[in-house]
């Protein structure tokens, strides 16, 4: 064992520049990989926050809107308000839907009060009256992702003028964010692959310069693990250095960019915190160790077989 460690140490010393280059490559690749994990976590957190706020709004018929064509639904009698009986039926049907958690009724008056509150400093507020508002139901879902069933039911109920849902707004945004996540992942995968190739190549060179020793080792019957171990330890040493550096990089990113800057600056968004950083660091460690072990095993194989 002592001999193996000595071999590893002398290998590292001999290829100091090479080991350093490998470490830097791994550092950059692992850091980017960590960032891709953070981006995915960030998108998840934002999704969770926004989807939590998502409600389906079911607007009821008014005298004004009656008969007007609308995108999502229109079961209104022209010029007629939704009758109390229809309203009750809508409420019971919605409450009976298994995906629905809560149904809240909001009358014209309440809506108007909300509107005036929201635009209290704007001249717009005086151009509308309570009669311009609509009675509506606000529906909270058990699982915000399962909204289609409720919407499809709501549009068929008599007395519903329109069904509106924030998914229509958010889905394209999340599609873009998902593309961002996968782009980051793809780039990270490419860099990690490049790092693996570089490691394999470096170890191959290092084995080539030691081929005489390897030949003698094989001749006297050194076991395969004995021959491979110094190479694995060598690249593992570089990997551990890279894991520490990229762990610190990711931690610094979360601390100085997200927690200290972004969070106070854009308070309305949900931001990732230390737990996300730990997840990223864990992934970095696992990937880094794999990166340190697998390529040298592959590249020294040809020196082991006969």
């Amino acid at each position: 064992m002592r001999h193996i460690l000595r071999e590893t140490w002398s290998g590292l010393k001999r290829n100091r520049a090479m080991a350093f280059a490998v470490m830097v490559t791994m550092w950059v690749s692992l850091s980017l990989f960590g960032v891709s994990v953070l981006v995915a976590e960030q998108v998840d957190v934002m999704k969770g926050r926004w989807y939590d706020k998502i409600e389906i709004s079911v607007f009821l018929c008014t005298k004004v809107h009656g008969g007007a064509t609308d995108l999502s639904a229109n079961t209104c009698e022209p010029g007629q308000e939704t009758t109390p009986a229809q309203r009750e039926l809508i409420q019971t049907r919605l409450e009976a839907n298994p995906d629905v958690q809560e149904v809240l009724y909001e009358s014209k008056g309440e809506r108007f009060a909300d509107f005036q509150e929201a635009y209290k400093n704007s001249p717009i507020k005086d151009t509308f009256t309570a009669e311009d508002m609509q009675d509506s139901f606000r529906i909270k879902l058990k699982d915000p992702e399962q909204y289609e069933g409720v919407m499809n039911e709501a549009v068929t109920l008599p007395g519903v003028q329109a069904v509106q849902d924030l998914h229509q707004v958010l889905d394209p945004l999340f599609a873009a964010l998902n593309a961002l996540v996968w782009g980051a992942r793809g780039l990270a995968a490419l860099l990690i692959f490049a790092a693996a190739v570089q490691i394999a190549n470096t170890i191959k060179l290092s084995a080539f310069t030691r081929r005489k020793e390897l030949g003698i080792m094989r001749l006297v019957g050194a076991s395969n693990s004995y021959i491979t171990l110094p190479f694995v330890l060598e690249s593992l040493a570089a990997a551990v250095g890279a894991i520490i550096c990229s762990g610190l990089t990711v931690a610094a990113l979360v601390k100085f960019v997200v927690i200290d800057r972004a969070k106070p600056f854009i308070d309305t968004l949900a931001w990732i915190g230390w737990d996300a950083a730990w997840v990223a660091i864990l992934w970095i460690a696992v990937t880094g160790v794999a990166l340190g072990v697998i390529p040298p095993l592959l590249s020294t194989r040809r020196y082991l077989n006969v």
């Binding site: 005489k212 094989r218 006297v220 019957g221 076991s223 395969n224 006969v306």
Partner: peptide, 22 residues
Amino acid sequence: RQWKVPEFRRQIGTVFQDFRLL
């Protein structure tokens, strides 16, 4: 078996024309 080869080679010593010293 391939993994038994190292153990097998321990029973054989080899000397070459070019010595092959480190």
